[in-house]
Design a protein around this nucleic acid. Structure first.
Lengths: 226, 226
DNA sequence: ATTACTAGTACTCGAGTAT
DNA sequence: TATACTCGAGTACTAGTAA
């Protein structure tokens, strides 16, 4: 399998760059990858090192290279995942987890959807509560939470059906029951065709969350996925 | 850092594909990588799976995927390297190892070089023996040995100097002392500008190896790098 | 619903080379 | 020596879609 930046990071680790600043040259690293032909060229190693530096995975000082904490984290993550997989432990789908983010204003697509009686009815029966006609937008602060949300969306969840109203078709949405700020039961709602990336999530609840929790834009909120 | 095929393999492992055939879809895997935008598209996951299958790292049967032994080996390797690096163990340069290959005929560049008095003299003083005017070409059978040879070449070795003769310049070469077939001391020789890839190595010794070891093309020979 | 093909674009690579 | 830039060539990507 073709080598990649990750292989370079691991090679640096193997050479001891985790514990100290080590002396390397781009051409020597290239040679260890099998040279220019069929391997990785000196130029590419040079570029990869610059890119690893850009992402703060490594630090450089002249010809010395040292792996930074985020680089170490990456390697620890891989080691852990590989070890657990080999041991037969598999990732459990949609397990309970906590995510955090800040209240944000936004397009309120969710609000629009939730206000439609067809959806409201579906949500009430599938989630166990009748949603307030509005959504709370949360911008996730940690990139690990963005990752978590992606896995969550991929793992299943409660789906609402699509329907047609006034000749327009409304797509599906995925919901996940949550506990907001440790107090109020609600749900994350992801319209199937969202304008947001995964860094903003929409929360619905039986009540107006902004009022009940006295929230203003920018205030931090924690959400427990159940 | 951008995901790569290796990440896909690890993800499959994480989902339990090491111990059993698991049910996955290319779109779900794509979603776990963050979807099409900024992540990896369904089409790419499809292609990656086909490529992993081509390299025999995974096996597929309809929508079921299972990691094959070479895929498991890959993951074990990563787990080991990552673990050792984190534990502070660094890779030792040019350690003693055994490589194997079959006798091959070839261009005999080495023979030409070795026959030159300037080289012969240098080799005699640097290697401790006066080389027979001929080389034995060995085609490595295991790809892991090719890898080993690359690392070897990158790690240092004994270098001969370049020189000029009859207005033509002759480049450097790198040598590594070895024990051939467990009996004869010699050296691997790598001219700096070789016509071979790393899958063929040239061996020199104080004697004619073909005669002494009664070798014919295709016969397997083991070489211990000292 | 799926997988994976084709087509066209975008990105990455490495040769050459400046520094 | 070394690193890292430019740029043309080739690879890998995604959108669209067929099966």
């Amino acid at each position: 399998m073709k080598k990649c930046k990750l292989d370079l990071l691991i090679l640096l680790a193997r050479k001891g760059a985790l514990s100290e600043s080590i002396l390397v040259s781009t051409s020597a690293l290239s040679a260890e990858f099998g040279g220019s032909k069929d391997g990785i060229s000196q130029q590419t190693v040079s570029r990869w090192l610059l890119e690893l530096e850009d992402s703060d995975l490594i630090g450089r000082n002249g010809k010395r290279v040292r792996i930074e904490s985020s680089g170490r984290q990456k390697i620890e993550e891989i080691a852990l995942v590989a070890k657990e997989s080999l041991a037969g432990k598999t990732a459990k789908p949609a397990e309970c987890c906590d995510i955090k983010g800040k209240v944000a204003s936004g397009f309120c697509e969710g609000k629009y959807y939730v206000a439609l009686p067809e959806y409201k009815k579906q949500l009430a029966s599938k989630l166990g509560f009748s949603p307030f006609a509005g959504t709370l937008n949360i911008r996730l602060s940690r990139s690990s939470d963005v990752e978590r949300v992606r896995k969550l969306k991929a793992s299943g969840g409660i789906e609402t059906d699509e329907f047609v109203r006034d000749g327009r078709s409304f797509g599906r949405s995925k919901c996940f029951p949550v506990l907001i700020a440790g107090k109020i039961r609600g749900a994350l709602i992801f319209p199937s065709r969202s304008h947001y990336g995964d860094e903003v999530v929409e929360v619905i609840a039986p009540v107006c969350l902004r009022e009940k929790l006295k929230l203003k834009d920018g205030k931090e909120v924690s959400i427990r996925v159940l």
